[in-house]
Design a protein around this nucleic acid. Sequence first.
DNA 1: GGTGTGGGTTCTGAAGCGGAACTCGGTGGG
DNA 2: CCCACCGAGTTCCGCTTCAGAACCCACACC
Lengths: 158, 158
Amino acid sequence: MGERTEHTPLERTLQLVGDRWSILIIRAALRGVRRFDDFAADLGIARPILTKRLTRLVEGGVMAKDPYQEHPPRYEYRLTPAGVALSPALVALIRWGEHHLADGDSPIVLVHGPCGTELEQGFWCRTCATTFGPTAIRAQSATTQPEHDSAQRDRTGP
Amino acid sequence: MGERTEHTPLERTLQLVGDRWSILIIRAALRGVRRFDDFAADLGIARPILTKRLTRLVEGGVMAKDPYQEHPPRYEYRLTPAGVALSPALVALIRWGEHHLADGDSPIVLVHGPCGTELEQGFWCRTCATTFGPTAIRAQSATTQPEHDSAQRDRTGP
DNA sequence: GGTGTGGGTTCTGAAGCGGAACTCGGTGGG
DNA sequence: CCCACCGAGTTCCGCTTCAGAACCCACACC
C-alpha cells in the first residue's frame, strides 16, 4: 500500500483540495454560500460526499464550522483566512478555463470590480520590482531565513 | 448519471485536470519529464491510469504526443503552450501548501531565480495600475455589460 | 401534534484507482 | 536464428470512492 506520505507542498495541497468537489465548494463559499443545504443545492453534490468534503476542509483549516443559532443548533461553514488565501489558485484555474477551454457559449471573464478591466495575474519580485514568467521560478530551501510572512495584499503595483 | 454539462470555466477546467494525478503529471512535465515510463516511475502512478490521464490531457490540449524516434516508434509527451499556461495555477497551489500546510519538515519556497527573493503572486489591473485582493474581483460577460450575477457577497476582509 | 426545516447518516450500485502480469513491435547480442 | 530486452501500453482482478435516493432526528411553528 502506498507509503508515500505526500511530502511536497503540492502533494499535500492536493490531498486536501485535489478532488472533484473541494475547489467548487470553496468557490461557492467565496460567493457567500454558508449552509449545508445551500452547498448541496448550489453544487448538485451528493450529500454524503458534501459531509465528507466539508469535514476534511474543516480539519485542513480551510473552512470553519460555527454555530449561527443556538436553540435548534445550526452551523454554518465559512472560509478561514487560509481558505480565502486559495483565491489565487481558484482564479488561475478559472482564467485558464476561460482562455483555453472556450466553448463559445459563455465568454465570461474576471475583471477588476471598480473599473471593469480584465484582471491579470503574474509573478512579482519585490526586490527586482518586475513581473516574470514561470521559467524564472526556482525552488529553494528556506531554512536559513524562515521569512514566511509575505502575503499578497493590496499594494500599489509594478 | 450527471447530465450537468459543466458550463462554467472552472468546472470545465476541473473536468480536465481536477483529479488526483493530472496536476502532478503537469508538474512533472514542467520539470522535464517526457516519456511514459519516466512519468510512471517519477509519480508512482499505476500505468493504466497514466495512460488515461495522458490521453485526456492530449485531447484537452494540455499536452502533445510527438514521436521522438521513428524506427521503433516511440513517443514523448510535451506540454503545449496551453499546458505551460497552467503554471500560475500550479504555483498558487504550491505556494498555498507551503504557507498553510507546513509540517515543519521541509520549508521550501518558490523564489525569483535571478535574485532569490520569494515570489509574490497577485491580481493586477492594468488600467488602475494596482494590485488587489479577491474581494475586488467580479465576473462579467465579455460581450455585453455586467449582467451576470454580481457573484460576490460581503465578506470579511481577505 | 402534524408539518417543515436544517443537517446530516444508511443503504444500495456504479465508477475510478492500484498492482501485477501480459502483449506487441522492434533492436541488439551471441 | 534465437532469445533477452526495452518502451509503451493493455488486461485482469480486487479494493476504495462516488452518486442517488431514502431515511433519521432534533427542534420550531402553526
